[in-house]
Computed example of a mutant assay.
Amino acid sequence: MISGVLDAVGEGVARYFANLKRDEFFAYHSAVTQWEIDNYLTAF
Rank of each mutant, 00 (worst) to 15 (best):
residue 2 I to D: 03
residue 2 I to V: 01
residue 3 S to G: 03
residue 3 S to T: 05
residue 4 G to F: 10
residue 4 G to L: 05
residue 4 G to N: 10
residue 5 V to D: 04
residue 5 V to P: 00
residue 6 L to T: 00
residue 6 L to K: 02
residue 6 L to I: 00
residue 7 D to S: 03
residue 7 D to F: 02
residue 7 D to G: 01
residue 7 D to Y: 02
residue 8 A to Q: 09
residue 8 A to S: 14
residue 8 A to K: 13
residue 8 A to L: 05
residue 8 A to I: 00
residue 8 A to T: 04
residue 8 A to W: 13
residue 9 V to F: 13
residue 9 V to S: 04
residue 9 V to L: 11
residue 9 V to Y: 10
residue 9 V to W: 09
residue 10 G to N: 14
residue 10 G to T: 05
residue 10 G to S: 13
residue 10 G to W: 09
residue 11 E to K: 15
residue 11 E to I: 05
residue 12 G to L: 07
residue 12 G to T: 07
residue 12 G to C: 09
residue 13 V to F: 11
residue 13 V to D: 00
residue 13 V to K: 08
residue 13 V to N: 03
residue 14 A to V: 01
residue 14 A to P: 04
residue 15 R to Y: 01
residue 15 R to V: 00
residue 16 Y to S: 03
residue 17 F to K: 09
residue 17 F to A: 06
residue 17 F to M: 10
residue 18 A to S: 13
residue 18 A to L: 10
residue 18 A to T: 08
residue 19 N to I: 05
residue 19 N to W: 15
residue 20 L to R: 07
residue 20 L to Y: 14
residue 20 L to M: 08
residue 20 L to T: 05
residue 20 L to W: 13
residue 20 L to G: 01
residue 21 K to H: 08
residue 21 K to G: 00
residue 21 K to S: 04
residue 21 K to T: 04
residue 22 R to A: 11
residue 22 R to K: 15
residue 22 R to Q: 13
residue 22 R to E: 13
residue 22 R to V: 01
residue 23 D to L: 08
residue 23 D to N: 13
residue 23 D to C: 03
residue 24 E to R: 09
residue 26 F to T: 06
residue 26 F to Q: 11
residue 26 F to I: 04
residue 29 H to A: 03
residue 29 H to L: 10
residue 29 H to E: 12
residue 30 S to L: 10
residue 31 A to K: 15
residue 32 V to P: 06
residue 33 T to C: 01
residue 33 T to Q: 06
residue 34 Q to L: 10
residue 35 W to I: 02
residue 35 W to Y: 12
residue 35 W to K: 14
residue 36 E to S: 07
residue 36 E to C: 05
residue 36 E to A: 08
residue 36 E to T: 05
residue 36 E to H: 09
residue 36 E to N: 08
residue 37 I to W: 14
residue 37 I to A: 08
residue 37 I to P: 04
residue 37 I to C: 07
residue 38 D to T: 02
residue 38 D to Q: 12
residue 38 D to R: 14
residue 38 D to F: 05
residue 39 N to P: 02
residue 39 N to R: 15
residue 39 N to F: 04
residue 42 T to L: 10
residue 42 T to N: 12
residue 42 T to K: 15
residue 43 A to K: 15
residue 43 A to F: 11
residue 44 F to S: 11
residue 44 F to T: 06
residue 44 F to P: 04
residue 44 F to V: 07
residue 44 F to R: 13
